[in-house]
C-alpha cells in the first residue's frame, strides 16, 4: 500500500515514550508527506503533546524510530534533530521574553539547506505582517496571538523541512485563528510537512489533510479529515468530552 504513495517526509514507527513507569505512548506508527498537514486529535492526556516532544527528542523515546527523509533521528539530542530539519513550536510558545522580536528570530536562524529559498527576516515579516511593526519590542510584552506568530516565525527561521505545531490555536481569538490558518496553508503550499496537535476542530478542519485520533497513547482512528468532519458519530466517540 505504501508503495503507491510518494515517499514520506516524516515516518514514525512504533514510537514509545514513558514518564517513569507510566507508558504515555504505546507504539505509534504514522507518516507525514511533503506539503501535507496531518492533525493529531484526541482528548486531554491522550498523548498529543508527548508525541511531538518524543519526535523532537525532548522526551527521549524508549522505543521506535523517527525518520526524516529516510534518516533515523530517534535517540539524538534535540539540537541534532532540529539541525536535521525538524522545527518544533511548543504549546507554551516558550519565547525568550526578555529578547526583542528580532532577537528571538535571530536565535532561531540557521542556514537553509542548498537549493531552498531561506527564511529571511523580510520573508517572515511578510508571512506575519503584525510582527513587523513590533520588531524591537520584547517578546514578553506582546499579545497571545502575536506571541504565537513569533513562536512559529522563530522556528521557521531555522529553515525546517517539517514543522511540529503544538496546539497553536489554543486560547486565541477567532480572528487570530483565521490568520494563523492562512499562514499554515501558505507553508503547506511551499512544500513544508506539518504535524499539528489540536483540540480546535474548526482550525484543524481549515488547514488539515488527514487526521489521527489518539487515545491513551495509541492511534484509534486514521483517515481524511473531511470524513471526520462529516461523521458525527465518529467525533462523538473519540473527541466528545
Amino acid at each position: 500500500m505504501t508503495g503507491a504513495l510518494p515517499p514520506a517526509l516524516l515516518a514514525v514507527e512504533g514510537l514509545e515514550a514513558r514518564y517513569g513507569r507510566a507508558r504515555i505512548l504505546a507504539g505509534l506508527t504514522f507518516h507525514v508527506a511533503r506539503g501535507e498537514v496531518v492533525v493529531l486529535l484526541g482528548r486531554n492526556g491522550a498523548g498529543k503533546s508527548t508525541t511531538l516532544k518524543a519526535i523532537m527528542g525532548l522526551v527521549p523515546p524508549t522505543a521506535g524510530r523517527v525518520r526524516l527523509a529516510g534518516r533515523d533521528l530517534a535517540g539524538l539530542p534535540p539540537f541534532r534533530i532540529a539541525r536535521a530539519g525538524l522545527g518544533y513550536v511548543p504549546e507554551e510558545r516558550r519565547l525568550f521574553a526578555g529578547l526583542t522580536v528580532r532577537e528571538n528570530l535571530a536565535v532561531g536562524m540557521r542556514p537553509a539547506p542548498p537549493g531552498r529559498q531561506p527564511w529571511t527576516e523580510e520573508r517572515l515579516f511578510a508571512l506575519f505582517p503584525a510582527l513587523a511593526a513590533l520588531r524591537d519590542r520584547p517578546a514578553g510584552r506582546m499579545s497571545g496571538g502575536e506571541q504565537q506568530m513569533l513562536a512559529i516565525a522563530r522556528t521557521l527561521a531555522g529553515n525546517p523541512r517539517l514543522l511540529l505545531l503544538d496546539e497553536p490555536a489554543e486560547g486565541l481569538a477567532p480572528v487570530v485563528v483565521e490568520r494563523l490558518a492562512e499562514a499554515v496553508k501558505a507553508l503547506r503550499a511551499e512544500g513544508l510537512g506539518i504535524l499539528l496537535s489540536e483540540q480546535n476542530l474548526r482550525f484543524a478542519g481549515a488547514v488539515g489533510d488527514r487526521a489521527l485520533i489518539l487515545e491513551t497513547g495509541a492511534i484509534r482512528w486514521e483517515g481524511p479529515l473531511a470524513t471526520l468532519l462529516a461523521e458525527e458519530a465518529l467525533r462523538a466517540r473519540y473527541l466528545a468530552v
Binding site: 523532537m56 525532548l58 539530542p77 534535540p78 539540537f79 532540529a82 539541525r83 518544533y88 511548543p90 516558550r94 525568550f96 521574553a97 526578555g98 529578547l99 536565535v107 532561531g108 540557521r110 522563530r154 522556528t155 531555522g158
Partner: peptide, 10 residues
C-alpha cells in the same frame, strides 16, 4: 531564559 528551547532551535 530557557536553555532547553535554545536546544530545540538547533
Amino acid at each position: 531564559e530557557d536553555r532547553e528551547m535554545v536546544g530545540a532551535l538547533g
